[in-house]
Design a protein around this nucleic acid. Structure first.
Lengths: 220, 220
DNA sequence: CAGAAATGGATAGCGGAACTATCTATAATG
DNA sequence: CATTATAGATAGTTCCGCTATCCATTTCTG
């Protein structure tokens, strides 16, 4: 397969493909002569992955590069696959006062303790969480955190499903890529489902007149 | 309060505040003379909201403008508050073939039927969902959808918590703003919690031999 | 086998987004 | 009354994600 076909197959313009190659998002083709190269199915696949991470996942070029680097990292143990995958995913940065940080940390610790989570206070993830909590308080909507436990419970369930599904993939490489895709696109999936559920739940609660006695009710 | 103090209070540069005013994200101050204005607590609050939507929520200026317009919309009924709030939130665009669309639609319908959700096939939300599903198949990770039901269940629970919490807010305006903040920042919150849960679940499943009650290990 | 089309590689340009800086005329401040 | 601050207008900057052009080689086509 040569450039034109790769472009057709993937739906990405030639100039853009070249740009991705320059940016290190797509490996070069196999050179058959100094200025001719061949590409394979792996290139098509990678291109589609790049597009999905950019458009659906909303990642930047730089983030995609890091994520792909994690995917291409050879020989990671099954356990810290998620860690490798997450390294390079965008995190909420936070420049907070110590006081805010301490307040948020307290809530995070309470939540973690309640769920039996092992907390790593220095990890960027914890930091992100602290940042979000502070932002919520900052805008005067601290009440959102009343549902923190239910959020965490839901996150736990989703994560369980994720790990189940990802562990079923064969090779380690497949698992790593699966973890990345599942994390990034899964966020978009979850966010969309949540919006749909909002509409549904609000319909059930406030548009009560005809509940239509199906097997579903306000029961959750 | 004048400009300098507003800037200090909110942590946003004066030039940026002026820019936000030009963009219609922040109402003008109360003019005391042709070129002097006073600002109040509402301005500080609005500014912090804008920053949170931009930084944490990752919205664009245009999206923030629409979201704020929804918030400021007077006299919305309690029921379609979520609808108003969601109008203007970014949705996944999708330029798909009819075939892909039909395939995804089928899965969405199955999921909705299973959960007793009322589906609006033309709504942008449904469209977003279809787009995400197609993207997942496109990158060869259709398996993620095996967990679609569990995702939807989790989304349902979260949405239930959201509606509960938001309904407890007093005025309609508070509810609308709460819905917006809860939706946008809630996404970030959920995504972060999911990542934490990933680490936790994977630790529990694969690192079972030595629990090592220390706080540092083979890091990340 | 000649001419047209495609390719790899390099470099430059472009349009939008989110600020940032400068300027001017007025107003508040010490 | 000199300094500083301010509203409003306009222009400039930086970064990002492409897009376009050019050129020296291949490779296809007739």
């Amino acid at each position: 397969m040569r450039m034109a076909e790769l472009s057709r197959e993937s739906g990405v313009a030639v100039a853009t493909i070249k740009y991705y190659q320059r940016e290190g998002l797509l490996p070069p083709g196999e050179l058959t002569s100094p200025n001719q190269a061949r590409y394979g199915a792996a290139h098509v696949r990678r291109l589609k992955l790049v597009r999905a991470l950019l458009e659906i996942g909303g990642l930047s070029i730089a983030a995609v590069r890091e994520v792909l680097a994690a995917i291409d990292e050879p020989g990671v143990s099954t356990h810290d696959v998620l860690g490798v995958a997450q390294h390079g995913l965008p995190a909420v940065r936070a420049d907070l006062g110590d006081e805010d940080r301490a307040w948020a940390m307290k809530r995070v610790e309470a939540m973690a303790a309640g769920r039996g989570w092992e907390l790593h206070p220095e990890s960027p993830l914890t930091d992100s969480l602290v940042g979000v909590l502070c932002a919520l308080r900052d805008v005067g909507h601290e009440w959102v955190l009343d549902a923190l436990d239910r959020y965490a419970e839901a996150a736990d369930q989703v994560a369980g499903a994720d790990i189940d599904a990802v562990a079923r993939l064969g090779s380690t490489e497949a698992i790593v890529e699966g973890a990345v895709v599942g994390t990034v696109l899964g966020d978009a999936l979850l966010a969309t489902l949540r919006r749909l559920a909002h509409a549904e739940v609000s319909r059930r609660r406030f548009q009560n007149p005809p509940p239509v006695p199906r097997q579903e009710d306000s029961g959750r």
